[in-house]
């Protein structure tokens, strides 16, 4: 199977600090790829490079097997890549519909087409079996953590996107809400999207993911199928960059 999204040999530095070294990463249609790594391993940086927030210093960016250039968030959005950030990036003073269409409002002529946007937002929420929100004209500030996460995820799938990247979607949630969000994440993959899940929580990773990619100090230690590895091996990859035959030798990927 060919990956939808693939980056090869990505380098990224901030001034004198090189954060990503020769990173290769792929995401597949209908699968959840967990991106794991310790704090500062470069998970967020890699995601922001993929999302076009940071320009990459070197490396190839392939989408559907074609070489592409992503110069900004809009380019990534046009390819069908959506990122749900850890801090959700919602505007508290806007309602659910307004947030879901932020930056890509539907218009008829000069005027915003509120009715169409409302319908599309409603359809998307229904297709994801979201029933927890009272009204889609509610201000986001009045929503709970889980509901906000749901809105942020729904916003990402509204655009017939092909790749959805979730940055720590369950980090701030309670047990029940975590289960709900993970279920939603699984549903996204079952709909045929390529899902990338950044997580610190090994239970979450093993519960839903199909593949695991482990970053270690800015290098990709390994990208493996979840079924082929154990909990302990993944923890080892995260903490030392290698585990048996897997991972880096002397800090360089094999």
């Amino acid at each position: 199977m060919n990956p939808v999204l693939e980056v090869r040999g990505i380098d990224k530095s901030f001034g004198p600090v090189q954060v990503l070294h020769d990173v290769t990463f792929a995401a597949y249609r209908g699968e959840i790829t967990a991106l794991v790594g310790d704090n500062g391993a470069g998970k967020s940086t890699l995601v922001k490079c993929i999302g076009g927030i940071y320009p990459i210093d070197a490396g190839d960016y392939l989408f559907d097997g074609e070489q592409v250039h992503v110069g900004g968030p809009r380019d990534a959005g046009e390819l069908g890549i959506e990122i749900v950030y850890q801090d959700l990036a919602l505007c508290d003073n806007l309602d659910i519909v307004q947030n879901m269409f932020l930056g890509r409002e539907r218009r008829s002529g000069l005027v915003l087409d509120e009715a169409t946007m409302e319908e599309m937002a409603q359809q998307t929420l229904t297709s994801l079996s979201v029933r927890t929100v009272k009204s889609i004209r509610q201000q986001v500030s009045s929503l709970s953590g889980g509901q906000r996460q749901t809105v942020a995820i729904a916003k990402a799938v509204l655009w017939n996107s092909k790749v959805v990247i979730l940055d720590e979607p369950t980090a701030a949630l309670g047990v029940a809400q975590t289960a709900q969000v993970l279920e939603l994440v699984r549903r996204l993959a079952d709909k045929g999207l390529a899902v990338v899940l950044i997580s610190h929580n090994m239970n979450d990773v093993f519960a839903v993911s199909d593949r695991i990619a482990a970053l270690y100090l800015g290098r990709m230690a390994a990208q493996v199928k979840t079924a082929d590895v154990t909990h302990a091996q993944v923890v080892e990859l995260i903490t030392s960059g290698r585990s048996g035959d897997l991972g880096l030798t002397n800090g360089v990927s094999t």
Partner: peptide, 22 residues
């Protein structure tokens, strides 16, 4: 009623979110 107006509210509410929304 215009996207421009919506964006003014968005930037005032969360500039970073607006930037990420393009």
């Amino acid at each position: 009623r215009t996207a421009f107006g919506r964006h003014i509210y968005a930037v005032g509410g969360n500039a970073e979110a607006s930037r990420r929304a393009g």
